[in-house]
């Protein structure tokens, strides 16, 4: 039996690394990758709880999270491509058109 603290630690560590990437990196594509890491961390937590409670509900919820992650990646890349076509950059510091 895998201890629940180990599963929690793994999920939270992956989540932490992803959050670090979203906040620190300035490359838009790498920020989207870090978002995938965040969702993966949550999936690990759900699978671990499902394993410990002997119930398939956690896995089912994780499946829905994967569906949502795929949707987010597809639409996010559409937005990145159309932004890049207009501005020729994906440095986050250049995203300041709304600044007064």
């Amino acid at each position: 039996m895998i201890p629940i603290n180990a599963v929690f630690g793994l999920g939270l560590l992956i989540f932490f690394i992803g959050l670090f990437g979203v906040l620190f990196r300035k490359n838009l594509v790498i920020m989207l990758m870090s978002l995938e890491l965040l969702l993966n961390g949550v999936n690990v937590l759900l699978a671990g709880l499902s394993y410990h409670m002997r119930s398939p509900r956690g896995s089912i919820f994780a499946i829905f999270i994967i569906i949502m992650a795929v949707s987010e990646a597809a639409v996010g890349f559409g937005l990145v491509l159309s932004y890049f076509r207009q501005k020729k950059t994906y440095d986050m510091d250049e995203f300041n058109e709304l600044k007064g």
């Binding site: 989540f15 932490f16 709880l49 398939p56």
Partner: peptide
């Protein structure tokens, strides 16, 4: 913000908590 989350991870890793009880439906 990540530093606070990292402290929380340390806290989670080193507290002993009982495993959650098994749900009503059995089996994976």
């Amino acid at each position: 913000l990540p530093a606070l989350l990292f402290l929380q991870i340390i806290n989670v890793l080193f507290t002993n908590r009982p495993t959650p009880p098994a749900g009503p439906e059995a089996g994976l």
